[in-house]
Amino acid sequence: MSAVDLVVTGIGVVSPWGCEPAKLRLDGEPATGAEESWFDLTAELGARGYKYVPSAARYLLAATRRALADAGPVLSGVPEARRGLALGTNSGIASVIDAMDETVTGSGADLLSPARAPYFSINTLAGRVAMEHGVKGWNLTLTSPRTAGMEALLAGDRAVRAGRSDLLLAGSAEAPLPVHTPGHDRSEAGAAVLVLEPHAAAVARGATGYGSCRTVAFFLPPSEAASPAAGRTVTAAVTRLLGEPSALPPVIRLVTDPSPVGTALAARLGQSGSRLDVVPAGAGTLQPVLHVAHGLARPGTVHLVVTASPDGACAMTLLRPHHLPDQKRDSV
């Protein structure tokens, strides 16, 4: 493996929990009600060009613009073929699909909107961003339940290390589930995008960055989530991330639910002596990434973000933020 250490040099967020990475209100409930209360399409993206673009892609475009603006002039130094983009999403097009299905089963496919039709495919969310920013290196859309946003950081990092690009945009985008869907009340909306580049490249252009992060992913089969084998899996994942199993940071944030997998993982991590903040998970991949973004933008006590999905997918991201004495980032 090549020695490419990526540093986060830009963060962009649009979400009902706030749009400033350092000031996300992640301990409280998100803003409820209409999207307009937290997302201003015209202010974010301009007055036109996005009529047919679904919500999740609008959020992702806006978060990407914010992240790139935050990172400073990074794209100009990276050829299009050396830019990569990894997106995690679960419900980014759930409502789009539902509305299309209603049309097809009702009045028929002839009445589908052609300009919206491509968005039946979930990878067009990231595809739209690639078009806007000339991301020609590669483009990945990951959809593993709940973990896919953190997996985007992992898969993106791996792709850069494998030499597939020199710049990584990675994050999550979600849009609410259809109103009549079970789980709608736990819907997430918004997007978070991180700009990552090799440390040497960031230094060369004078970018300080927020710090670095590393992710591992693993799987706990729900039927044996509390087994000794599952315990060894968690230990092995922690070891891969930290070098030794006992080195867990003092505060861990776990985004999950009371499923057997979430409960078992909480129990394992709780044995470590670290303080475990358990945050109720939403229906998608966004919240874990927001915790990562916030943990980097406003260095505090949380240096490990963990998430677990009831189906068994689990991921952990270790944050190594630069501590900025002047708290410059807070005033951004």
């Binding site: 990878n123 859309t141 799987f219 999905s309 068994g312």
Partner: peptide, 20 residues
């Protein structure tokens, strides 16, 4: 991917890729 991982008893990451 996670249902396959469960059925196989696999503990490595279970990743679902959706590049159409």
């Amino acid at each position: 991917a996670s249902t396959v991982a469960s059925a196989l008893g696999a503990h490595g990451a279970a990743t679902c890729v959706s590049n159409a």
